[in-house]
Nucleic acid binder design. Structure first.
Lengths: 394, 394
DNA sequence: TCACATTTGTTAGTAGACCTTCCTTACTAA
DNA sequence: TTAGTAAGGAAGGTCTACTAACAAATGTGA
């Protein structure tokens, strides 16, 4: 044999991968989170149950449960009622009354919506406050006060504060740009954290929405996209249980992708000329799919024309989503927004268009549905942000 | 405060997350891989260097290096020549001569291409064999023989065999469907593994291409899509260092997304009527972007018309990619295929179209380029499959 | 020239994390 | 009453990575 070294291609000289070391204590933290997550998703169970479903030994689970009980996160709930052979199991469960979570949704330009939730995601207290046109530093102060009010309203220690905000937000919770609020490079998480004295997590509102849907909605598979339709249009994507963040933290920014071309005649019911968008370009998705745009489009139309108009937008959306759904082989696409606009001809047309434009292997297992969380998607997602950040529960 | 429990939304009752336990030995394996990966990417270094860049202590690194030396994967290379203060460092480096990797690319319908590579990804020996129209069981036997020949040709122990094949392939290396080869639910990896006696990893060819580009190409950022244009069109996506697999293992199947509509007039240089595709639908990307389709399109045209025709396809591609690039906020899109077709007007038009149709925050940092690996993308990617599967090096 | 600082790599001891093994407890079934 | 089964805990072992301390080898400055 001839050693034909036909091309120079050594590994050296490449950029370093940002891997980090893993210590045994990280393994411990992971297993602790796993026990917690199991109690969270599957409800109370015995230590032996937990051992069986986690794969850890009963001894280890006992140890983990002991430390979780010491932290007040779980508690023994007495023996299991059903009589089976052997020693009766003592159930342990998440103490949903031990901590609470404060969540805030800033998607609405007019009002900030917030809530206090228990560890199971149940809303305990709901508040909102007017934005009154505040922007920049003033808006940060208003938000701080609002969060403080919510923390005050909690009836037990607050695990953390989660905020879902429009805009591009990095992993540290710094708002890189949020035109609506006039925020540019605002370190929102650290500012709130030092003001409130509790951990604060901030993320894009569409990303919190997808986290909420993933954790509390009926997420079945491994690829989930949530499209949030409000004053703007956004998207959040969870793949293999992890949020897609994007190279510049801008993943999911679908609102300003062009969907209407100048010379446009693709559709039987044309969308009309490409409309100017707030971003300065023309024909962006937001110019046809945002709530204001949809309301304008159907204003004064008779029911039949309304349906046709909505279906027309739906077809456009399907065309836009087809490449995304195919590239990622998603299992679910979920719409979050006003059902009267989204959950009829628009959704049907989008699904039909998606099916027409993708392979059966992609479209046959795809589900396209409305969120099960109503308007609280981003809010409960903000809570998930805290659960995930503080307890590792997703 | 009133405890307003306004909606039933406990966590219980949800499907279990498929989390797995983590043991200290897994941490060990991770740290071992990290040391190995560092030697792979950054080249030889002292134990103290490795300690600094991994964050582990010198003691731990010494221990890891000792076990890696015992396995024959690394070796001491003598003292570092540069004279600095202190005890001279003894360099440790990956022994690229200790193991070899066999890689096979099945993307070509006519010939199977294979190679023996060293641990640095350098091709040591190159072979190919005619497919001769074999399909099904017969094709599996031919592949087995070809792999055995390559394993035979290796001059030192074979770390594993990596295969890149068209089709939908699951994580275990079972080909769920590959029409070109007539393979349906063929457990290719386990079949080859038992025949060859070495670990075998099988993945979709577009996925191996993106792995190759990620590891050996100039992947700079965190989101990479490789579009492979050959007899068909495929794509592979790496996000945050991990391959996107998809709900049904079909991520990247972009070849059969519709890009040409029946009533199509979007473009100044229209693509003509939607062509029938092998998949039974019309207007799929493959009907305009595959190598045969492109060759047909430009056959007999003068240079100027050729450019216009290629640009027209490029614009279509840009329209298709815009939602994907936006949804994932990719940092790089890489084309793999014949440069004479792809690397001119087609690529320019695609980039221009992408920029026109996406937000600046998405497009300004996006790079759209040809692969740096030539035709070996899928081949070196298949080697990465082995490196990653056996050593945890990516 | 010689003491001292600096860096490398190793040895010894410690703390944490999980495991296996064995025991007690408490219940069901015959 | 006796055997069998299951839950939970105690004891001891192994593995992992850490800190502390040290020897070796080199450069630096008085």
């Amino acid at each position: 044999m001839t050693a034909t070294a036909d091309r120079q291609r050594q590994g050296w000289g490449k950029a370093l991968r940002p891997t980090t070391k893993v210590l045994p204590e990280h393994a411990r933290a992971h297993n602790r989170s796993m026990v917690l997550a199991h109690l969270f998703h599957a409800g109370p169970g015995s230590r032996a149950d937990l051992a069986r479903s986690t794969g850890l030994t009963r001894v280890t689970v006992s140890d983990l449960v002991a430390s979780l009980m010491a932290e007040g996160l779980v508690a023994e709930l007495g023996v299991r009622p059903e009589g089976r052979v052997g020693k009766p199991a003592t159930l342990v469960g998440l103490r949903t009354d031990s901590f609470q979570i404060v969540a805030v949704d800033l998607a609405d330009d007019e009002r900030m919506h917030g809530a206090v939730l228990d560890l199971a995601g149940l809303v305990v207290e709901r508040r909102s406050t007017a934005v009154d046109g505040r922007t920049g530093e003033s808006a940060v102060r208003a938000l701080t006060d609002f969060c403080a009010e919510l923390v005050e309203a909690a009836t037990c220690p607050v695990l953390g504060v989660g905020v879902g905000s429009p805009g591009v937000i990095d992993a540290a919770g710094t708002v890189l740009e949020a035109p609506n609020r006039g925020w540019y490079d605002v370190p929102l998480a650290s500012t709130l954290e030092s003001a409130l004295g509790v951990p604060v997590h901030v993320a894009n509102d569409a990303n919190t929405a997808v986290l909420g849907e993933f954790t509390y909605g009926g997420a079945t598979g491994s690829g989930l996209l949530v499209l949030t339709v409000g004053e703007g249009v956004g998207a959040g994507i969870v793949l293999d249980g992890a949020l897609v963040k994007g190279h510049r933290h801008a993943a999911g920014e679908l609102g300003h992708v062009t969907v209407v071309d100048e010379r446009d005649d693709v559709d039987g019911a044309p969308l009309g000329p490409a409309l100017e968008c707030a971003c300065g370009r023309r024909g962006c998705l937001e110019t046809v799919l945002s709530v204001p745009a949809l309301r304008r489009r159907v204003a004064g139309l008779d029911p039949q024309s309304t349906d046709a108009a909505l279906a027309s937008v739906g077809r456009r959306l399907g065309i836009l989503l087809a490449p995304v759904v195919s590239a990622l082989n998603l299992s679910e696409v979920v719409f979050s927004g006003p059902p009267d606009l989204l959950d009829g001809p628009l959704r049907s047309a989008a699904l039909e268009s998606l099916r027409e434009r993708t392979m059966p292997v992609i479209s046959s297992t795809l589900e396209l549905r409305m969120t099960t969380l109503g308007e609280d998607g981003a809010l409960s997602g903000a809570a998930v942000l805290v659960l995930s950040g503080q307890l590792g529960v997703t």
